[in-house]
Design a protein around this nucleic acid. Structure first.
Lengths: 335, 335
DNA sequence: TTGTATGCGTTATCAT
DNA sequence: ATGATAACGCATACAA
């Protein structure tokens, strides 16, 4: 691995001049610049990231923190899709992406400690349990942070439009004549709160008043708990005609519960998912669901994070809302 | 952020002693060690990764290189699942994981250059187009490499047991009385070659001889090309009774083609997928498929890579084969 | 326009 | 058992 020292020797100049030439400083003659650059290329020079980081305190590293309740990790398609998009945009802007975790090599280490250890220039946080004090610690630290789908004070956030997106679902369902609509929501998070708010608000618009027993709590990305909730709903004296699920993947549990009872979707019971993962479109009947724009969420998160890093003075906390799209399927019956 | 300097001052010893105490050298008194360690803890000290990397030439960073033909990235569940498992095991061993790419910030950069730039201690390669000369360049470099599902000379490899796993599929299908078995395989890779070999070999065991027109080429993770191939197969004068797909996700294309023709699975045509992603088990009828053990593939890749890094002398190129499991579904009819 | 010198935080060598 | 010091590769303040 060539260093600026070797380039300096090859060019007959000092390392300082090489450094300046390579970093586009004005006080170097044009010919020296081209000589240095050419030599660097032929020598296959690449700067040593560690040395540069030590000196400048910038690593060009972005951390990605994502922990979901179920510990699904990247198997959670919402996250994998979000992170993929974040990664693509980050690389486009010259940043590398690394995962932030607790416990590195047995060493218990807070998220913040891990970020400092790796000198992440910034971190994107996308997880369910934003109540974790370690997350708050990171948000309150000196490290620029962008969160996805959770609002912290003084922290830029990219929000999926949960209130209105849920409204789109309810509008769709009510448009098909449903009035007995149940909602199995995920764990108590701000996302769930917003979806619930959108749910009740839009129901109200249609004069629909869901009884308390129609509101069930389950976990995101957990078919089992949705299976349980579905069974409870279907066992009601006056069961709903339509069930909204926490997400497409959880719906699988609901699907199994419905099947087990010998009921048909949508003839006997209508259902709606959330996320719009490929699975939802492969199911027959095709699942009616709401496609979150994870591509855009990830892209914007990267852009805003880099902005916060490179232009700290002119950057202020923003809330950016990204709407999703209703994907009408075949799982909501016309009543 | 505390440094060893501050610890040294607080303890009234030199930085050298602190460093030794922290890194478990023998030539420090037990009491000094405990004093230093205790002080480090109370000061919230964490080593500066960049400084350490600069000095030791070890970063405790592992690179992950994965590029698939379709550019699906982490949306490809085989990869996301593999990488998740790799990441978990890597972290357990004290390594961080970062993505390797070409083109960082517009700078064209070979994979090898990216790895050197970031001083990756090792790299795991899991991609489809192993023919890329840049991949070969990386494999031939000084950086320890472990590949997944592709065999290079002089490089440890974790292989999914493609030959025998495909054998399991064929055995299952033949056991149900099928003799007209078509195979839509993915792009020309060593994985495809092995599956094809396993396919023909096991067919032969059962006295089945698939005619050339039953062997179709498509792309992995691409429903469209499998859709085309399925149509071609079903249009044959003497169509197959069973079609094997490149993977579960591609099968969606085949499913649509079958539906469009008004055919029923498995009454009119039997099908088998590959991978065993959650989607396959959510389909009705449940897709018969082969579950690759991505968890184990990723875990072993991490273990073997770290071994190659920490014990270069005693490490030699290995080929480790990880078998998958047939997941019998409901998409293969008894003839 | 170019070069000299210093320091980032750590580890390692060699004295003491 | 402990400490002074150099070095890793780079960027930069300052001198020339």
């Amino acid at each position: 691995m060539a260093t600026i020292k070797e380039i300096a020797k090859a060019c007959g100049v000092s390392t300082a001049t090489v450094s300046k030439a390579l970093n586009g400083y004005a006080d170097v003659s044009a010919e020296t610049v081209s000589l240095v650059r050419e030599t660097a290329r032929t020598l296959g020079y690449f700067p040593n990231a560690a040395a540069r980081a030590l000196k400048t305190n910038y690593t060009n590293n972005l951390g990605v923190l994502f922990v979901d309740g179920m510990g699904s990790g990247l198997a959670h398609e919402y996250f994998s899709s979000l992170i993929e998009s974040f990664k693509v945009q980050a690389e486009r802007m010259g940043y590398d992406v690394l995962f932030i975790s607790q416990n590195l090599g047995g060493q218990p280490m807070s998220y913040l400690e891990h970020c400092r250890y790796r000198r992440c220039d910034g971190v994107v946080i996308a997880c369910c349990n934003f109540t974790d004090p370690q997350v708050a610690q990171l948000v309150d630290s000196e490290i620029p942070v962008v969160t996805v789908d959770h609002l912290f004070n003084n922290c830029t956030t990219i929000l999926s439009d949960n209130v209105n997106d849920m409204g789109k679902i309810v509008r769709h369902v009510c448009g098909f004549g449903h009035t007995r609509i149940a909602y199995i929501h995920g764990e108590e998070t701000s996302v769930s709160q917003k979806r619930l708010a959108g749910f009740f608000k839009t129901c109200e618009e249609f004069g629909v008043i869901p009884p308390p027993e129609y509101i069930k709590s389950a976990l995101y990305h957990d078919p089992k708990s949705s299976w349980v909730a579905t069974n409870e709903l279907l066992a009601l004296e006056n069961p709903p005609t339509c069930i909204l699920y926490p997400d497409d993947f959880s719906f699988i549990g609901g699907m199994n519960a419905v099947e087990k009872r010998g009921l048909k979707i949508p003839a006997d019971i209508s259902v709606v998912g959330y996320d719009g993962i490929p699975l939802s479109q492969a199911l027959r009947p095709r699942l009616t669901t709401l496609k979150q724009n994870t591509r855009e969420l990830g892209r914007l998160a990267a852009i805003k994070l880099v902005q916060a890093i490179t232009e700290p003075k002119t950057t202020f906390p923003e809330q950016i809302i990204v709407p999703g799209d209703l994907l009408p399927g075949e799982t909501v019956a016309q009543l």
